[in-house]
């Protein structure tokens, strides 16, 4: 459920409705730089009404999904 929502936010952000995303997709592969990652986390926070600590380095979509699941658990 979290993964699907993250994919939706990511597709909207990149304006690519057909974008292929898996848990293993890295931000680098998705052509997202560090500030894009922050932007995505901000949008995800608003969408899930939660606050995500960005202490650990986020490299993949799976990392973000993991953080949200922890935050909303």
């Amino acid at each position: 459920m979290v993964f699907e929502k993250v994919v939706e936010i990511l597709r909207n952000y990149k304006e690519e409705p057909e974008l292929e995303v898996t848990m293993e997709s890295s931000f680098e592969e998705l052509e997202l730089d560090s500030l894009d990652t922050v932007e995505l986390v901000m949008e995800i926070e608003e969408s899930f009404d939660t606050s995500i600590e960005m202490d650990s380095e986020l490299k993949t979509i799976g990392d973000v999904v993991g953080l949200i699941e922890k935050a909303i658990a």
Partner: peptide, 10 residues
């Protein structure tokens, strides 16, 4: 911390 400052600034 660039990420934190970015979030704070926006």
């Amino acid at each position: 911390d660039g990420s934190e400052v970015y979030r704070f600034a926006v």
